[in-house]
Design a protein around this nucleic acid. Structure first.
Lengths: 233, 233
DNA sequence: GCAAAAGTGTTGGAAGTACACCCATGG
DNA sequence: CCATGGGTGTACTTCCAACACTTTTGC
């Protein structure tokens, strides 16, 4: 039995994949291999299959692009403008992902011509993909102001100055290192390690690891990492 | 030209319509007029049409149900489980709406057997509609803890005790009236009127109106209406 | 004159911000 | 020994939460 007299549509899943290189935010893009817009840059996407849920489709697409599984993935919104894809009406469910750019480098699937772009130096994208990136950026800024989600972008061991860089990159500003450090440590989410990262200074900065337990317990909590979050949204 | 070899799907828009009767939260439901699940209660929904964007579809559905236009409407999320509709795979884009229940009463479209239910006394709903209501409730709690969105549920003139009731209803708790009143007045969003509502007390409570200008300017701002929001999410 | 809800003020504690100095190290 | 980034402590202010009494008026 079917519903009669109704139109059916293609559904795509498109993923905005964010990374952080220690300095700046990046987005992973691919060069589209098929018409239309062949050779233009695009988000990673794919059509959903008959027996596939959205989450599964998004994870599949992400795995194809990055080789990674179990990364942070969140539904952003649906883009449904009737003419967003000139070929045929397609609704796109946008997801955004946060991945550790270093792990990615080991696992990359070379079948795709994927490339990292600095978030503020992106090429033109196909269709409404730039809008999607814009929306994802906004959502991430919002979310990160309240929840410790940015840890998803860091490697297992990281330093406080790195973490500070990350937040500063996202909000395009600088934070006071004393207050910043006090604030993140006061969450109790970080476990100090014995070794240091000597890459960026003579003295070296202590590594920290995330307390995974507390992280998942406190993920929903409002943490106010950012002073005056209003300014940035 | 079309994309070949891909499956197409039905897309529905489903609306969770919230109202507040002065005491409790309510949801607007309809009795489904066609099979399957005829006579069971359901959210208001409809299939999207070939040339219709999602926002337009959601507004159309909402207008059919309530007769109202220009009400607060926000995309919630997509529900895409392959078997959520037993008849045929259908993806549902859920929207939630906040309406002034009093205005609604004047404009109701009687073509539909729509009925208000107390949020915590809902009948069984079809498909995954209960999940949708659950998600909408959660989203609303989250949003209202930070942004002045609940005013959308009130009539043009309202009193502070009413507003307090509204927040208490949503979070299932009570707030200190002195702190509550100070907090909402300090936003500068309210304009005191000369007349009082004598319905609930001998003394009467002053009416307030929303300063629409400031409301739209400050909508994105973090207002922290709720003490310890963590507890409620 | 009393019951019932509305309205208002103060105070102590916590959290947040601004700000300046010492530390460790490699060259 | 000095330049560079890492790390820490304090005083001030602001915000928040807790709490109790007075006001109005219909009966």
């Amino acid at each position: 039995m079917k519903y009669s007299g109704q139109t059916r549509f293609l559904i795509a899943v498109d993923c905005i994949v964010f990374g952080f290189d220690g300095e700046k935010f990046k987005v992973l893009l691919i060069q589209r291999g098929f018409a239309p817009e062949r050779k233009k840059w695009s988000l990673m996407g794919g059509f959903i299959q008959p027996e596939e849920s959205l989450e599964i489709a998004a994870n599949r697409v992400l795995k194809q692009l990055t080789g990674l599984e179990g990364v942070y993935l969140e539904q952003l919104q649906v883009f449904g403008d009737p003419h967003r894809d000139p070929v045929e009406r397609t609704l796109a469910v946008a997801y955004f992902a946060l991945i550790d750019i270093q792990q990615y480098e080991k696992q990359i699937n070379h079948e795709y011509n994927a490339e990292w772009f600095l978030l503020d130096e992106m090429p033109q994208l196909i269709f409404d993909h730039e809008q999607m990136v814009e929306a994802a950026k906004k959502r991430l800024r919002y979310k990160a102001a309240l929840h410790p989600v940015l840890f998803e972008l860091l490697p297992e061991k990281f330093t406080i100055p790195q973490l500070k860089n990350l937040y500063e990159g996202l909000y395009g500003t600088t934070f006071d290192k004393r207050n910043f450090s006090r604030k993140v440590l006061s969450t109790g989410l970080l476990v100090k390690q014995k070794d240091k990262d000597k890459g960026n200074s003579r003295k070296g900065a202590f590594y920290y690891k995330l307390d995974k337990q507390k992280y998942s317990e406190n993920f929903q909590a409002f943490l106010k990492f950012i002073p005056n979050p209003d300014k940035f949204l």
